[in-house]
Design a protein around this nucleic acid. Structure first.
Lengths: 115, 115
DNA sequence: AGGTTAATTAACCTATTGGTTAAATATTAT
DNA sequence: ATAATATTTAACCAATAGGTTAATTAACCT
Protein backbone atom coordinates (compact mmCIF):
# COMPACT_ATOMS: atom_id res chain seq x y z
CA UNK A 1 0.00 0.00 0.00
CA UNK A 2 2.77 2.54 0.74
CA UNK A 3 3.85 4.47 -2.32
CA UNK A 4 7.64 4.18 -2.02
CA UNK A 5 9.35 2.21 -4.75
CA UNK A 6 11.04 -0.36 -2.54
CA UNK A 7 7.76 -1.23 -0.78
CA UNK A 8 6.01 -1.54 -4.13
CA UNK A 9 8.70 -3.90 -5.38
CA UNK A 10 8.66 -6.07 -2.26
CA UNK A 11 4.85 -6.20 -2.37
CA UNK A 12 4.89 -7.27 -6.02
CA UNK A 13 7.26 -10.11 -5.14
CA UNK A 14 5.17 -11.24 -2.18
CA UNK A 15 2.98 -13.45 -4.35
CA UNK A 16 4.03 -16.83 -5.73
CA UNK A 17 2.03 -16.39 -8.94
CA UNK A 18 3.85 -13.16 -9.71
CA UNK A 19 7.24 -14.65 -8.91
CA UNK A 20 6.43 -17.58 -11.20
CA UNK A 21 5.51 -15.12 -13.95
CA UNK A 22 8.86 -13.39 -13.57
CA UNK A 23 10.63 -16.75 -13.66
CA UNK A 24 8.74 -17.61 -16.80
CA UNK A 25 9.90 -14.37 -18.42
CA UNK A 26 13.56 -15.23 -17.86
CA UNK A 27 13.35 -17.44 -20.94
CA UNK A 28 12.09 -14.61 -23.10
CA UNK A 29 9.05 -12.56 -24.04
CA UNK A 30 5.65 -14.15 -23.45
CA UNK A 31 2.05 -13.33 -24.29
CA UNK A 32 -0.56 -13.07 -21.55
CA UNK A 33 -2.05 -16.42 -22.56
CA UNK A 34 1.37 -18.04 -22.45
CA UNK A 35 1.88 -16.68 -18.96
CA UNK A 36 -1.59 -17.68 -17.80
CA UNK A 37 -1.38 -21.24 -19.05
CA UNK A 38 0.35 -22.87 -16.03
CA UNK A 39 -2.07 -21.38 -13.50
CA UNK A 40 -5.47 -22.54 -12.33
CA UNK A 41 -6.78 -19.02 -12.54
CA UNK A 42 -8.90 -16.94 -14.92
CA UNK A 43 -7.40 -14.49 -17.37
CA UNK A 44 -8.56 -11.36 -15.53
CA UNK A 45 -6.67 -12.55 -12.46
CA UNK A 46 -3.51 -12.80 -14.57
CA UNK A 47 -4.17 -9.37 -16.07
CA UNK A 48 -4.29 -7.99 -12.53
CA UNK A 49 -1.04 -9.66 -11.54
CA UNK A 50 0.58 -8.23 -14.66
CA UNK A 51 -0.66 -4.76 -13.72
CA UNK A 52 0.97 -5.10 -10.30
CA UNK A 53 4.23 -6.20 -11.90
CA UNK A 54 4.04 -3.38 -14.42
CA UNK A 55 3.42 -0.73 -11.74
CA UNK A 56 6.40 -2.12 -9.87
CA UNK A 57 8.34 -1.75 -13.14
CA UNK A 58 9.32 -5.41 -13.01
CA UNK A 59 7.90 -6.04 -16.48
CA UNK A 60 7.39 -4.01 -19.64
CA UNK A 61 4.73 -4.50 -22.25
CA UNK A 62 4.35 -3.89 -25.94
CA UNK A 63 1.80 -4.62 -28.66
CA UNK A 64 2.00 -7.06 -31.50
CA UNK A 65 -1.26 -7.54 -33.36
CA UNK A 66 -3.79 -8.80 -30.81
CA UNK A 67 -1.06 -9.79 -28.36
CA UNK A 68 0.42 -7.72 -25.51
CA UNK A 69 3.74 -9.43 -24.97
CA UNK A 70 5.52 -9.00 -21.64
CA UNK A 71 9.21 -8.94 -20.97
CA UNK A 72 11.30 -8.85 -17.85
CA UNK A 73 12.53 -5.48 -16.57
CA UNK A 74 14.84 -6.55 -13.76
CA UNK A 75 16.20 -3.16 -12.63
CA UNK A 76 14.06 -2.83 -9.46
CA UNK A 77 15.58 -6.09 -8.25
CA UNK A 78 18.88 -4.29 -8.13
CA UNK A 79 17.45 -1.95 -5.46
CA UNK A 80 16.32 -4.91 -3.41
CA UNK A 81 19.72 -6.46 -3.77
CA UNK A 82 21.32 -3.26 -2.51
CA UNK A 83 18.91 -3.05 0.41
CA UNK A 84 19.55 -6.63 1.43
CA UNK A 85 23.30 -6.23 1.05
CA UNK A 86 23.42 -4.22 4.29
CA UNK A 87 22.15 -7.30 6.13
CA UNK A 88 24.50 -9.84 4.63
CA UNK A 89 27.02 -9.65 7.46
CA UNK A 90 24.25 -10.48 9.91
CA UNK A 91 23.33 -13.79 8.34
CA UNK A 92 26.85 -14.68 7.33
CA UNK A 93 28.03 -14.56 10.92
CA UNK A 94 27.15 -17.73 12.82
CA UNK A 95 24.35 -17.26 15.28
CA UNK A 96 26.62 -17.03 18.32
CA UNK A 97 28.92 -14.64 16.57
CA UNK A 98 26.01 -12.47 15.56
CA UNK A 99 25.09 -12.26 19.18
CA UNK A 100 28.62 -11.17 20.00
CA UNK A 101 28.59 -8.71 17.13
CA UNK A 102 25.39 -7.09 18.32
CA UNK A 103 26.66 -6.92 21.89
CA UNK A 104 29.84 -5.33 20.62
CA UNK A 105 27.95 -2.72 18.63
CA UNK A 106 25.73 -2.08 21.61
CA UNK A 107 28.80 -1.62 23.85
CA UNK A 108 30.32 0.80 21.34
CA UNK A 109 27.12 2.81 21.20
CA UNK A 110 26.88 3.03 25.00
CA UNK A 111 30.51 4.07 25.07
CA UNK A 112 29.74 6.92 22.67
CA UNK A 113 26.80 7.89 24.83
CA UNK A 114 29.23 8.13 27.72
CA UNK A 115 27.28 5.59 29.77
CA UNK B 1 -1.69 -13.85 2.17
CA UNK B 2 -0.09 -16.95 0.65
CA UNK B 3 1.42 -19.26 3.24
CA UNK B 4 4.80 -20.00 1.65
CA UNK B 5 7.82 -18.71 3.50
CA UNK B 6 9.27 -16.58 0.72
CA UNK B 7 5.97 -14.78 0.18
CA UNK B 8 5.65 -14.16 3.91
CA UNK B 9 9.15 -12.70 4.03
CA UNK B 10 8.62 -10.44 1.00
CA UNK B 11 5.29 -9.29 2.43
CA UNK B 12 6.89 -8.46 5.77
CA UNK B 13 9.49 -6.34 4.00
CA UNK B 14 6.90 -4.52 1.88
CA UNK B 15 6.32 -1.90 4.57
CA UNK B 16 8.68 0.99 5.34
CA UNK B 17 7.90 0.95 9.06
CA UNK B 18 8.88 -2.70 9.31
CA UNK B 19 12.07 -2.17 7.29
CA UNK B 20 12.95 0.74 9.58
CA UNK B 21 12.40 -1.52 12.60
CA UNK B 22 14.79 -4.08 11.14
CA UNK B 23 17.35 -1.36 10.44
CA UNK B 24 17.00 -0.18 14.02
CA UNK B 25 17.70 -3.69 15.27
CA UNK B 26 21.01 -3.85 13.41
CA UNK B 27 22.52 -1.86 16.27
CA UNK B 28 21.35 -4.33 18.89
CA UNK B 29 18.40 -5.52 20.91
CA UNK B 30 15.59 -3.01 21.49
CA UNK B 31 12.43 -2.84 23.58
CA UNK B 32 9.06 -2.23 21.95
CA UNK B 33 9.01 1.33 23.27
CA UNK B 34 12.48 1.97 21.87
CA UNK B 35 11.37 0.71 18.50
CA UNK B 36 8.13 2.69 18.58
CA UNK B 37 9.74 6.01 19.50
CA UNK B 38 10.69 7.25 15.99
CA UNK B 39 7.22 6.62 14.56
CA UNK B 40 4.09 8.72 14.62
CA UNK B 41 2.02 5.67 15.43
CA UNK B 42 0.37 4.15 18.50
CA UNK B 43 1.88 1.23 20.40
CA UNK B 44 -0.68 -1.32 19.19
CA UNK B 45 0.29 -0.53 15.61
CA UNK B 46 3.93 -1.28 16.46
CA UNK B 47 2.90 -4.48 18.25
CA UNK B 48 1.18 -5.57 15.05
CA UNK B 49 4.20 -4.80 12.91
CA UNK B 50 6.34 -6.80 15.33
CA UNK B 51 3.94 -9.73 15.05
CA UNK B 52 4.28 -9.65 11.26
CA UNK B 53 8.08 -9.60 11.55
CA UNK B 54 8.00 -12.38 14.13
CA UNK B 55 5.78 -14.60 11.98
CA UNK B 56 8.18 -14.00 9.10
CA UNK B 57 10.94 -15.07 11.51
CA UNK B 58 12.79 -11.83 10.86
CA UNK B 59 12.92 -11.02 14.56
CA UNK B 60 13.00 -13.01 17.78
CA UNK B 61 11.67 -11.94 21.13
CA UNK B 62 12.45 -12.65 24.76
CA UNK B 63 11.32 -11.41 28.14
CA UNK B 64 13.16 -9.28 30.63
CA UNK B 65 11.03 -8.05 33.49
CA UNK B 66 8.17 -6.06 31.95
CA UNK B 67 10.04 -5.67 28.65
CA UNK B 68 9.83 -7.88 25.55
CA UNK B 69 13.08 -7.10 23.79
CA UNK B 70 13.39 -7.80 20.08
CA UNK B 71 16.46 -8.85 18.16
CA UNK B 72 17.21 -9.34 14.51
CA UNK B 73 16.92 -12.83 13.04
CA UNK B 74 18.32 -12.30 9.54
CA UNK B 75 18.18 -15.86 8.18
CA UNK B 76 15.07 -15.41 5.99
CA UNK B 77 16.91 -12.64 4.17
CA UNK B 78 19.32 -15.27 2.97
CA UNK B 79 16.46 -16.98 1.11
CA UNK B 80 15.54 -13.72 -0.56
CA UNK B 81 19.15 -13.19 -1.50
CA UNK B 82 19.25 -16.64 -3.06
CA UNK B 83 16.01 -16.02 -4.94
CA UNK B 84 17.23 -12.73 -6.31
CA UNK B 85 20.61 -14.15 -7.23
CA UNK B 86 19.02 -15.96 -10.17
CA UNK B 87 18.08 -12.58 -11.64
CA UNK B 88 21.41 -10.86 -11.19
CA UNK B 89 22.62 -11.61 -14.72
CA UNK B 90 19.52 -9.93 -16.08
CA UNK B 91 20.14 -6.57 -14.49
CA UNK B 92 23.90 -6.74 -14.84
CA UNK B 93 23.66 -7.08 -18.61
CA UNK B 94 23.08 -3.74 -20.31
CA UNK B 95 19.56 -3.31 -21.58
CA UNK B 96 20.42 -4.05 -25.21
CA UNK B 97 22.48 -7.03 -24.24
CA UNK B 98 19.62 -8.34 -22.12
CA UNK B 99 17.45 -8.16 -25.17
CA UNK B 100 20.05 -10.16 -27.10
CA UNK B 101 20.36 -12.60 -24.25
CA UNK B 102 16.63 -13.23 -24.14
CA UNK B 103 16.46 -13.65 -27.90
CA UNK B 104 19.33 -16.10 -27.72
CA UNK B 105 17.64 -18.15 -25.01
CA UNK B 106 14.41 -18.06 -26.96
CA UNK B 107 16.19 -19.27 -30.10
CA UNK B 108 17.81 -22.09 -28.15
CA UNK B 109 14.46 -23.15 -26.75
CA UNK B 110 12.79 -23.15 -30.16
CA UNK B 111 15.71 -25.15 -31.46
CA UNK B 112 15.12 -27.77 -28.75
CA UNK B 113 11.46 -27.83 -29.65
CA UNK B 114 12.52 -28.67 -33.17
CA UNK B 115 10.74 -25.60 -34.59
C1' DA C 1 -19.68 -8.23 -42.64
C1' DG C 2 -19.21 -12.09 -39.27
C1' DG C 3 -16.77 -15.08 -36.34
C1' DT C 4 -12.74 -16.20 -33.53
C1' DT C 5 -8.96 -15.27 -30.54
C1' DA C 6 -6.48 -12.18 -27.18
C1' DA C 7 -6.81 -9.34 -23.56
C1' DT C 8 -8.95 -5.83 -20.64
C1' DT C 9 -12.60 -3.57 -17.98
C1' DA C 10 -16.47 -3.43 -14.84
C1' DA C 11 -18.85 -4.93 -11.05
C1' DC C 12 -18.80 -7.65 -7.38
C1' DC C 13 -17.28 -10.54 -3.18
C1' DT C 14 -14.44 -12.00 0.77
C1' DA C 15 -10.36 -11.76 3.42
C1' DT C 16 -6.45 -9.18 4.91
C1' DT C 17 -3.84 -4.98 6.14
C1' DG C 18 -2.77 -1.14 8.79
C1' DG C 19 -4.41 1.83 11.59
C1' DT C 20 -7.39 3.53 15.71
C1' DT C 21 -9.29 3.71 20.86
C1' DA C 22 -10.28 1.47 25.06
C1' DA C 23 -9.59 -2.24 28.13
C1' DA C 24 -6.68 -5.91 29.98
C1' DT C 25 -2.37 -8.13 31.58
C1' DA C 26 2.20 -8.39 33.61
C1' DT C 27 5.90 -6.71 36.13
C1' DT C 28 8.13 -3.45 38.98
C1' DA C 29 8.31 -0.03 42.64
C1' DT C 30 6.49 2.12 46.68
C1' DA D 1 -2.09 -3.44 48.49
C1' DT D 2 -1.59 0.24 45.15
C1' DA D 3 0.27 2.80 41.59
C1' DA D 4 3.04 3.17 37.57
C1' DT D 5 5.19 1.36 33.39
C1' DA D 6 5.44 -1.82 29.34
C1' DT D 7 3.02 -4.30 26.30
C1' DT D 8 -0.80 -6.84 24.36
C1' DT D 9 -5.63 -7.87 23.23
C1' DA D 10 -10.23 -6.75 21.61
C1' DA D 11 -13.28 -4.45 18.81
C1' DC D 12 -13.73 -1.64 15.27
C1' DC D 13 -12.98 0.76 10.59
C1' DA D 14 -11.56 2.04 5.78
C1' DA D 15 -8.79 0.73 2.07
C1' DT D 16 -6.48 -2.86 -0.60
C1' DA D 17 -5.68 -7.47 -2.52
C1' DG D 18 -6.87 -11.34 -5.02
C1' DG D 19 -10.14 -13.70 -6.96
C1' DT D 20 -14.68 -14.38 -9.72
C1' DT D 21 -18.27 -13.80 -13.86
C1' DA D 22 -20.02 -11.14 -17.57
C1' DA D 23 -19.42 -7.70 -20.88
C1' DT D 24 -16.25 -5.04 -23.92
C1' DT D 25 -12.48 -3.87 -27.01
C1' DA D 26 -9.08 -4.95 -30.54
C1' DA D 27 -7.12 -7.41 -34.20
C1' DC D 28 -7.13 -11.15 -37.14
C1' DC D 29 -9.23 -14.44 -40.72
C1' DT D 30 -12.31 -15.90 -44.03
Amino acid sequence: MPADQLSTTFAALADPTRRAILASLTTGEKTVSDLAEPFDMTMPAITKHLKVLEKAKLIERSREAQYRPCRLHPEPLKDIDEWIEKYRKFWEASFDRLDDYLKQIQAKKEDNDGE
